[in-house]
Design a protein around this nucleic acid. Structure first.
Length: 840
RNA sequence: GCCGAAGUGGCGGAAUUGGCAGACGCAGUAGACUCAAAAUCUACCGCCCUCAAAAGCGUGCCGGUUCGAGUCCGGCCUUCGGCACCA
């Protein structure tokens, strides 16, 4: 027999047919992942096995996993995210889908620039050499990535489209420049979007340095315009947790905008969620920065007000937001008129009111709002009860009464005795009639600040002309190239600011001298549309991607990645897709139909992996020690995927042992028995079909750990039956099915086994096995017999046995007779194929 | 404070959604093989009593529904995550 050319070098071919004839291998061959894995990867590449091309004869499946930042080395977190996602994509492929599973690099970002400063390497070179390295590391993962679709977001042919999209946003009025107090990271020397400021101490998401506030002119994208639509999750199957986080982030609150007249004549608008408490307003509070403060302050109060404003402006965000901070404020000397009852109410300023939310002014109802209550107590302002629970007199309040559902409006003019909940709507209608207010909705969501004072990003394609003002770069002039010869100095300022050739340009409108915008775009812009770039990398047409590719592959069917992006990337990309839809670039509302999040792998000490702790697990080392397939199996088997947990170096050894056993099991022959027992064949077939069913369901459901467990169970049974069934046609068939079921998890080993079992390349082009429901069900089952819910005996019985027969047999069981002791059962409950409970 | 998720052996985790708790694996114990070790194989492996068996107990705590609760309901406790002077 001539060995197939496909077999890994140094290996002899062992074919199922030979084994069936009873010839024994003389040479003991071990599982050697280091020989077979590189061999098959090369073969896959040569035969373009994973090339994804449009094929209208098949249903498509766009599987996507979050692209990595090229930090230099692939770490175990990347493997944990990607390898199981790959197994899922492979499973879909074997189910008959035409699967697209691309990979690329989110290549702009600050670390490259820091490396430039520290080690005098140009960010471009640093990034590209990291990509070279990481691409090779990624390839050792044995994933079915289609590398011909790779994208690198820092290449001009890519960021040209990031810039183009910015211009479309600008033309639609969705990109604007505004002077406002913004979050600034003093370590990264750049402004940040609010999404990138985390935690109670408001630190930078990247470097964990607490941010400071700066008043700067910055570019924003109007994501708030889409706030309401972003709250609609009806078209996507996303984890509840992500949805909740996005809902919290967007923070919708419904209520009314009420117009108060100031005695001086101006209007003061406030937002309230409690229009039912309008009759209880006893003072107004403005944010210290509120534009009306200046004109409202009376000469007597001026000194005090200005001192307070100064102090508030100097306070850091953290100080101002400190949870238990005592309320402070200052009276402006002016009064407003409550539109509902004409009462004269004092206007104060206080730093517990934020200029950035609502109108920057609130109507204070101390009786029914905790903050207003605390403030009123401190400054001896009146507290007027206008909501009380079911007719009860609240008396002297010791705390604000904030209940709504059992509250009744009191002392509220025409609305007295109206239930509070009902009153909210009625008061709004009443205000609208009288022209004093209207229904209003407020969102916590802020517009997306995209300016970064950094070099290594896509330049914002804007030109400033003394004559024409803000002028967008014409589309045909894109990309606005990053100059290569930038000088990196540790000044904290962007090198673009001092790059004369970049900075000075001519105005596209008047041709006069003009200057370029020197800020670059947030890298989250690049990753907001990358799923479209994979369709036709660096597309040269008139849109960011080839519409024909888009029509076939879009939208993304299955997205996987970390939950840390819930309120950043995952909101941004939804926003981008909705805008792209409104631009006519796509015809759907949501970029990713289904999303699953993996957890985080911790060090063996249960701490977050970090170089300083010395608890980092390097995938390259693991591949060296156990081979890719064992690492993949352990990453799937070790934890619930969505949770993750601490690494266990013994755990991976267990998985490596499993693969060794599989190798032995399927490839090392034993003496064939001439007449295999029929009942053993039956046992094998049943388990095989049960395993197909189970593995299918578990993979469908991202339950990788139980998918692997089901394969282990099957291999355990195969090992037990091997001495009896080796060489039989059922054995060979089962071996092949096992190999197919193993293929998503172990692409290399399964390919090698498949060849050695005498089958044609490639195992990855085979159809996923089908189970036969008739073979899945057991013929006889063990029924648990309980008395009063406690197990007393067991009964083995054919599965289709009648209930009466089971009852009869159960009552005759010795274990039951003993407990029964002549008593008559009150009733018996039978659960088909499971148990019989005898109730005394 | 508000919202959400999770608590199961020494460990990671299973449990067909109300029906045998602890699948599968790790760690451990004993044995086989070996001059010995490693590797491999076999058996055991929730707690408590016991020579053993049987009984009893057991899914964070307390209570409830049910023939039957890890699973459902009510009330707590703990841990983690998100939001937070957001009007």
């Amino acid at each position: 027999m001539v060995p197939r050319p496909l077999i890994a070098p140094g290996h002899s071919l062992t074919r199922g047919i030979i084994l069936k004839e009873g010839s024994l291998l003389t040479k003991y061959e071990r599982y050697q992942p280091h020989k077979i894995e590189p061999f098959w990867r090369q073969k896959w590449e040569e035969s373009a096995l994973y090339r994804a091309v449009i094929d209208h004869s098949k249903p498509k499946h766009y599987a996507l996993t979050m692209l990595p930042y090229p930090s230099g080395d692939l770490h175990i977190g990347h493997w944990y995210a990607m390898a199981p996602s790959d197994a899922r994509a492979r499973f879909m492929r074997m189910q008959g889908y035409n699967v697209l599973f691309p990979m690329g690099f989110d290549a702009f970002g600050l670390p490259a620039e820091n490396a430039a400063l520290q080690r005098k390497i140009h960010p471009h070179n640093w990034t590209m050499s990291n990509i070279e390295r990481m691409r090779e590391q990624l390839k050792t993962m044995g994933a079915m990535f289609d590398w011909e679709r790779e994208i690198i977001s820092c290449l001009p042919d890519y960021y040209k489209w990031s810039q183009w999209l910015f211009l479309q946003f600008y033309k639609k009025g969705l990109a604007y420049k505004k002077l406002s107090p913004v979050d600034y990271c003093p370590k990264c020397n750049t402004t940040l979007a609010r999404e990138q400021v985390w935690g109670e101490d408001r630190h930078c998401e990247r470097c964990e340095t607490p941010v400071i506030k700066k008043e700067l002119e910055q570019w924003f994208l109007k994501i708030t315009e889409y706030a309401e639509e972003l709250l609609d999750f009806s078209q996507i199957d996303w984890p509840e947790k992500v949805i909740t986080m996005q809902q919290n982030w967007i923070g919708k609150s419904e209520g009314a905008e009420v117009t108060f007249k100031l005695e001086e004549g101006q209007e003061l608008k406030v937002f309230t969620t409690r229009p039912d408490t309008l009759w209880g307003v006893t003072f107004m509070v403005l944010a210290p920065e509120h534009p009306l403060v200046e004109s409202l302050t009376t000469p007597e109060q001026r000194a005090e007000v200005q001192a307070y404003q100064y102090q508030a402006s100097r306070q850091s965000e953290i100080e101002r937001l400190a949870v238990d901070k005592e309320k402070t404020g200052v009276f402006t000397g002016s009064y407003a008129i409550n539109p509902v009852n004409g009462e004269r109410i004092p206007v104060w300023i206080a730093d517990y009111v934020m200029m950035s939310y609502g109108t920057g002014a609130v109507m204070a109802v101390p009786a029914h709002d905790e903050r207003d209550f605390a403030f009123a107590q401190k400054y001896n302002l009146p507290i007027k009860v206008v909501i009380s629970p079911a007719g009860k007199d609240l008396g002297e309040l010791t705390a604000a009464y904030t209940e709504i559902d059992d509250g009744i409006m009191v002392n509220s003019g025409p609305f007295t005795n109206t239930p509070a909940r009902e009153g909210q709507q009625k008061v709004i209608a009443w205000l609208e009639e009288r022209g004093q207010g209207k229904k209003a909705v407020n969102y916590r969501l802020r517009d997306w600040l995209i300016s970064r004072q950094r070099y290594w990003g896509a330049p914002i394609p804007i030109i400033y002309c003394d004559q024409c003002g803000v002028v967008p770069v014409p589309e045909e002039e894109l990309p606005v190239l990053l100059p290569e010869d930038a000088e990196f100095l540790p000044t904290g300022e962007s090198p673009l600011k001092h790059h004369e050739k970049f900075l000075h340009t001519t105005c596209p409108q008047c041709g006069g001298a003009a200057q370029r915008e020197t800020d670059t775009m947030d890298t989250f812009i690049c990753s907001s549309w990358y799923q479209y770039a994979y369709l036709s990398p660096y597309y040269q047409g008139s849109t960011p991607f080839d519409p024909e590719e888009g029509a076939y592959w879009l939208p993304v069917d299955q997205y996987t990645g970390g939950i840390e992006h819930a309120c950043m990337h995952l909101i941004y990309t939804r926003f981008f897709t909705k805008v792209m839809r409104d631009l006519g670039l796509v015809n759907f509302d949501e970029p990713m139909l289904s999303l699953r999040n993996q957890g985080i792998i911790l060090g063996e000490d249960s701490e977050k992996m970090s170089k300083s702790r010395g608890n980092v697990i390097a995938p390259d080392d693991l591949v060296g020690a156990y081979g890719t397939d064992a690492v993949r199996v352990y990453l799937m088997f070790g934890w619930r995927w969505e949770l993750g947990g601490p690494w266990d170096s013994h755990g991976i050894e267990g998985c490596y042992r499993f693969l060794n056993r599989v190798w032995e099991l399927l490839l090392t022959p034993v003496e064939a028995k001439p007449q295999p027992a029929a009942e053993k064949i039956k046992t094998l077939e049943r388990k095989v079909h049960q395993t197909i069913k189970k593995a299918t369901a578990e993979l469908q459901n991202f339950s990788f750990n139980t998918y692997i467990a089901s394969l282990m169970e099957l291999s355990n049974l195969l090992a037990k039956l091997k001495p009896d069934l080796w060489g039989s046609k059922e054995w060979i068939e089962s071996s092949k099915i096992f190999t197919l079921l193993l293929a998503p998890a172990c692409p290399h080993l399964s390919e090698e086994l498949w060849t050695r079992l005498g089958e044609e390349y490639s195992v990855h082009n085979q159809r996923w096995p089908q189970w036969d429901e008739n073979l899945v069900t057991e013929e006889s089952v063990e029924i648990v017999v309980q008395i009063n819910g406690k197990i007393k005996d067991r009964l083995v019985i054919p599965v289709e046995a009648e209930e009466e027969l089971i009852q009869e047999k159960a009552l005759a069981l010795p274990g039951i007779q003993a407990v029964l002791a002549g008593k008559t059962p009150r009733k018996m409950i039978y659960v088909k194929g499971r148990l019989l409970n005898i109730v005394l």
